[in-house]
Nucleic acid binder design. Structure first.
Lengths: 156, 156
DNA sequence: TTAATCCCGAAAAAATTTCATCAAATTATA
DNA sequence: TATAATTTGATGAAATTTTTTCGGGATTAA
């Protein structure tokens, strides 16, 4: 993974298009960024080996599969030992309803975005999964009323 | 978009696989979920027309393109009129550095996840973009120290 | 039980991707 | 500025993938 790839304006356009639609054919992509399919193909390979362009994923409508409720959860770990933090992070990775987790500056140790089917669902997760976990010291939950924007596309 | 599709266990496996790797061929997918390529293809089409399976996107390493800093920003709008809210939400959609935005219960109106290159970058965004916007009443920002987990895959 | 329907997998057809080659164009360098 | 190195787009062929078609078996309804 050569970390030192210099990105030019066509690379940027490729990244933009592919972040919006990862299923574009090379021909369509070439047309949109004003290049040839061969060149697009080469650039994509380079961006991939540089670790800039990573996975392809398909998105699923969360509400349609019973995870339409988003909860933002601020959390403190019981203590700040390396072991506790490692246990906590492993635990976070094991729970599919935890979509995102950030280690935070400020009053709380972590901030989580958790999806749930409804309030009762989340109550169960909070009381019997999160707060029961030995690494977790405390939590404060805030429900999202609605989703205004969700993007996976980083600015390029 | 027929909303009434009943999802069975093979559909669920397909969704799981495709959320993890959207570039799987139908043949590989068929093998993993224990079905045939044609059947997988048909199920995918149904899941798509039902609006359950949505876009294919490629992910980009945010840090490698200069957006490695995550900031969680709580925000109040200036007032709660329909117009102010609509203006605010249109503004949010127009800003690529705002990756996510939730309308929230509790003390704040919205919660944003914003990406930036560094602290100075964010300072500029906060002072000259967010707080300068006529719909924005106030904000409180919290920097993420690190990203513990980021998943686009909803539980199925 | 029969008939209609649905879902399946196999196979064929159509399209796309992958990757090599080459000459021209562009860029860097001496 | 001349030369070297790199990048580009066109081309094409092989491999792979997507999509359609089709007959048969399971399921359901009458």
């Amino acid at each position: 993974m050569k970390d030192n790839l210099v990105i030019d304006s066509i690379d940027r356009r490729i990244l933009t298009e592919l972040q919006a639609n990862g299923a574009l054919s090379h021909a369509e992509l070439a047309q949109r960024v004003g290049s040839s399919t061969a060149s697009c193909w080469r650039r994509i390979k380079l961006l991939e080996t540089a670790g800039i362009l990573t996975r392809t994923v398909r998105l699923v409508d969360a509400a349609k599969v019973g995870s339409g409720v988003n909860v933002i959860c601020n959390l403190r770990v019981r203590d700040h030992s390396r072991e506790t933090r490692a246990n906590f992070e492993a635990f976070i990775h094991s729970r599919p309803e935890v979509m995102e987790c950030f280690s935070m500056s400020g009053d709380w140790d972590y901030l989580l975005r958790v999806v749930a089917g409804d309030v009762a669902d989340y109550e169960h997760f909070l009381m019997h999964v999160l707060l029961d976990h030995p690494s977790v010291g405390g939590a404060s939950s805030h429900f999202a009323l609605s989703l205004t924007k969700y993007s996976t596309a980083v600015p390029v």
